[in-house]
């Protein structure tokens, strides 16, 4: 697996390089701004781009804009965006119609190396990972009395994990419940929200995101 890193903090960049290399992931290039990221991705065609949102020159959302362009030019490139602040709008811009091979995590997650590397591999393999904080934002910003209030607390937990991009097996492990129970909850959620059920995790994320955004 080959990765391009875009991160303007040298400290964090070298840390990430070491972390990935230590886990047998090849770092094809590491750069410090959005333009350089685009060039590196075009030149090296990596499996995944690890992108910081705020980079020079404007220090606003260079990384995000570069990610959207990579998405359009080279859709096979998986993208994992890291940010000091997670905002649902960023997540929505990123996913924009296809949640496959997209990740959006708050920077703190790099401290939990095993989980972080798992997320890198999952996203590179076409999965989706949204930070629990983004999902919490999406779930909180809801009107009262809508279909979401019909969900049981357990179903809300399952919905949140689905929105993060977790598979049924991961949800089972996270909540410590059986396979049948997870399936039952997922079916109930899709029925209550009137969403088309889907086995593919990334399509599930998209359905849930779309639902949460446009209700």
């Amino acid at each position: 697996m080959r990765v391009v890193i875009a991160e303007d903090s040298v400290l964090l960049r070298t840390g990430l390089e070491r972390m990935l290399a230590g886990d047998g992931i090849e770092v094809a290039a590491s750069v410090g701004d959005g333009e350089a990221l685009l060039e590196a991705v075009r030149a090296t065609r990596p499996d995944l781009a690890l992108v910081d949102v705020r980079m020079p020159p404007s220090h606003t959302d260079e990384g995000l804009r570069a990610a959207v362009r990579i998405r359009a030019e080279l859709p096979a490139t998986a993208i994992l965006v890291l940010s000091q602040y997670v905002e649902e709008h960023h997540a929505v811009n990123l996913v924009a119609g296809d949640a496959r091979g997209i990740g959006y995590l708050i920077k703190d997650r790099v401290a939990y190396v095993e989980e972080f590397l798992e997320a890198v591999r999952a996203v590179a393999a076409g999965g989706t990972r949204l930070d629990p904080q983004v999902v919490a934002q999406l779930l909180n910003r809801r009107r009262q009395g809508g279909p979401l209030s019909a969900l049981s607390p357990r179903e809300r937990e399952v919905l949140a994990l689905m929105a993060e991009g977790r598979s049924n097996a991961a949800i089972r492990a996270e909540l410590g419940i059986g396979t049948r129970a997870v399936e039952k909850h997922v079916t109930a959620i899709f029925a209550k929200l009137r969403l088309p059920d889907s086995e593919a995790d990334h399509r599930r994320v998209l359905a849930v995101m779309t639902y949460l955004r446009h209700r």
């Binding site: 903090s9 840390g15 990430l16 220090h59 790099v110 401290a111 190396v113 972080f116």
Partner: peptide
């Protein structure tokens, strides 16, 4: 804060994780 303390702390957290 963003370019200094936050980045350094994230780097520190990463190193401690490693």
């Amino acid at each position: 804060l963003h370019d200094g303390a936050q980045q350094h702390l994230a780097g520190l957290a990463l190193d401690l994780g490693m």
